[in-house]
Each structure stands twice: as C-alpha cells, then as structure tokens.
Design a protein around this nucleic acid. Sequence first.
DNA 1: TATTGTTATACTCTATAACTATA
DNA 2: TATAGTTATAGAGTATAACAATA
Lengths: 160, 160
Amino acid sequence: MPEAEARARSPAPGRGEDSIDFGPVGQTLGFLLRLAQLEAFREFFDAFEGREAIRPGEATVLLLIEINPGIRQGVLAKALMIKRAHMTKMVRAMEEAGLVERTVPEDDRRSIELHLTGPGRAQLDRFRDHFLGHEVGAESRLTPRERAELRRLLRKFLAL
Amino acid sequence: MPEAEARARSPAPGRGEDSIDFGPVGQTLGFLLRLAQLEAFREFFDAFEGREAIRPGEATVLLLIEINPGIRQGVLAKALMIKRAHMTKMVRAMEEAGLVERTVPEDDRRSIELHLTGPGRAQLDRFRDHFLGHEVGAESRLTPRERAELRRLLRKFLAL
DNA sequence: TATTGTTATACTCTATAACTATA
DNA sequence: TATAGTTATAGAGTATAACAATA
C-alpha cells in the first residue's frame, strides 16, 4: 500500500512526529468549527465503512422529510443552508432513485412538496438507528456531559 | 434585485414564515457542527465584505507559516486536515503570488520548507487584526463565557 | 519499501445568473 | 414585481491514483 494516504486515523490533527503551533488561529471559533466538522465527518465515514454508501446530506434530507411530511424544497434548502439550485439536483436524484415523491400543492402551484415513498421509508429504516445512534466524539475525548454541553452551545449559536 | 438569493441574513436557519422540525437530527453533533461551520463562514464573509478577497484557508496558511517558520508542506496539510495534493496547489499559487518561499532543506531533500516573503508578511499585517479579531457568534447569541466554553470543548474534541 | 511532493482526473459542493411558471 | 423551482456554467474543494526523487 505505497500510497493509500493512510486515512490518518490519528487522534490529534497535528500531533505526530512533527508538531505545530496554531497560535491565535487555534483560538478562533471559525477555525475550530471547521476542523471539528472535518473530524466529525471523518468519524462518520469511518463508522459507515463497508456499509451501504449513504451520504450525510442525503440521509439528513430523508430524515427531515419523514419528520416534516410535505415540506417544500425551498424550506428544506434554507434550513440546511444550501442553495435551492443544489437542493433541486439532490432531490431530483432521490426522486429518480425512487426514494421521494414530489407533488405540486393546489394552494401554491409554484412550489413542490416532498414525501417519502415506500422504498424511501425502507431505506430510512435500514440506516436510521446507525445514523442517529452514531455518537461523534464518543471515543473518550469528551465526557457525555461535555458532549451535551457542546450540543447546547452549538444549538444556541445557531438559534435552533 | 429579482434573484440575488438575498444572502439570507436571518438569525436562524429554519425560522421564518415556514418552520421545520429537526427532530433527532438536530441533536447530532455532526449535523450541528456542519451548520455551525457554515454559519461561521457566512459571518466571516459578511465581515470581510468589500475588503480584499482573502479566503479563510489561505489566511490560515499564512498565519501558520508566520508562527511556524520553515514548516513543511505535509505537516501543514495534516494539521489542517487537507490532502497533500490540495496543499501543493494552494502553496504553489501563493508562491506565484509572491507570498511564500519554498526551500529544500539539506537533511531531507524530499521535503519543502515554507517561509513568508516580504510581501507575504505585508499582506498578513494588513488582515491579521481583522481576521483574528473577528469574533464569530459575537452577535448576541452566545455570551463571552459561552464562547470560551465552546472553544474549550471544540479544542478538547480535536485534542488540540 | 516507504515517504514527500507532484500531476492528472473525476466527482462533489457551491455560487451565480438567466429562465419558466406561477403568484 | 416577487417567488419557487429549474437549468447551465464555472469555480472551489476533495479524493484517488500514479509518478519521480529521495530516504
């Protein structure tokens, strides 16, 4: 395996043979949030390794449609902070895959309401527990109390 | 301005005329970190609006080279959790822009050490205060104490 | 054999703007 | 005149693999 990039499963980003001083950069929320998000997604992909390839974005969309049946595309896009153009492509692909259904409501025929199909529900059932149950950062670093506090602070930051 | 996407400067992601129930998804760290990072970057770009176009990634690289003179490309890439191939392109562009200098050390002639040039230092001086001084989430949502605790938890999560 | 940086390729994500159909 | 969704295009970012030089 001469060039497998090794998927650097090291616990710390910059700790190895060579260390690095992050200085004041390492105290800015923007920088910390970026690294933390990368680390969280890496843990996610490691956890789903070998299983069916479901991406965080698509999984989230399915879960949100399930819990908000008939939600409109634009509302979903705004909630996930992605552009409507991107949401269109995403939802279209999921429609072609037979996972979601798109219907035009009578009261506003410009918009499109989203519902899960049978297969969509079935796929959700397959990954929901694993997806929601996978606790990021559970590997010793943060205590359960700290994880809860981190969630609380992020939700307040986001005004969720 | 018929289609300016309005840069949705709303305080909350999903709060508007239409609301959305995030359900259990809104309690997962991965989801919260992703949204928080997007929000942080949006605040960053809003704050730098109109000023010279410096991107967070490049600014971070300059700041880290300044504080770790002679740091090798690979070490920098690992610390920032980006691939070496991407770091190559980034650093090459910055070299062409005259901001950094790349030298081959005697003890390991495979590697490349990075230093700031005069112009690189000058550009750093121009944005450093604004970049480091810009406090993400300062707009009322989190108290200074909460921001400090958030930073602490993220650093512990990242083992920084 | 392994590692550092490089190049090339492809795919995802994102940003922007113009377009349509509705409102 | 504005809005919801669409389409097209371009640009970042990222992943992957193969390669040369060096260790």
